[in-house]
């Protein structure tokens, strides 16, 4: 007859005590749709296309983001700005801007490549879609709303004001 050793019984009882104790700990569960996890400052969520304070789009349609994208998820087509119909400062703007969220790997290279900080990765991670077509985010879905005091694009502007595509640096040593 091979009776269990004393140490074995002790370990079993110790284990039981540990599981009993853990019953009174605070659960780590986050009740998701009601309570949301804290988003860290450098979190890379869904992209947005930003605007200047006057409502003009920051994107100048240069396609550097598409070139930088390792997953080939971004498609940009650009067109000419005129002072009658101005979308962005400078010569050109993005007439089509599409990101395929099924391809995007959220690396943030587009953000790094952008000369005007037009595209940034923000904190929205609730990306669900029910079809492949829905997974392609168009310009309308990516653009942020017009800020207060700004006007929607295209704007009719004074000639010769918005000639620079990339804003002048406030502090060149920065």
């Amino acid at each position: 007859m091979a009776l269990p050793e004393r140490a074995q019984v002790q370990e079993i009882l110790r284990g039981m005590w540990i599981t009993f104790r853990s019953m009174f700990e605070k659960p780590v569960t986050i009740q998701y749709p009601e309570v949301k996890r804290r988003i860290h400052t450098r979190f890379r969520g869904r992209h947005v296309l930003n605007r200047y304070e006057n409502g003009l789009e920051k994107c100048i349609g240069c396609s550097l983001c598409a070139a930088a994208c390792p997953a080939d998820a971004i498609f940009v087509e650009s067109a000419e700005n005129t002072d009658e119909e101005r979308y962005s400062p400078g010569e050109r703007y993005a007439s089509t801007y599409e990101i395929n969220m099924l391809r995007c790997i959220f690396c943030g290279y587009c953000e790094d490549a952008c000369p005007t900080q037009a595209i940034t990765l923000e904190d929205n991670y609730e990306l669900s879609f029910t079809s492949r077509r829905d997974a392609i985010y168009t310009k309308e879905r990516l653009l942020v709303p017009v800020p207060e005091g700004g006007k929607p694009t295209p704007q009719k502007v004074e000639p010769g004001v918005f000639t620079r595509a990339v804003p002048e640096m406030a502090d060149p040593t920065d």
Binding site: M1, A2, I18, T19
Partner: peptide, 25 residues
């Protein structure tokens, strides 16, 4: 509670426990 704590016994040990420990005891 026991289910939450103890891992599954190996099969030969289960048989050994049954025949060599519990039955004589």
């Amino acid at each position: 509670w026991v289910r939450a704590t103890l891992p599954r016994l190996r099969y030969d040990r289960l048989m050994a426990l049954g025949w060599k420990v519990l039955l004589p005891l």
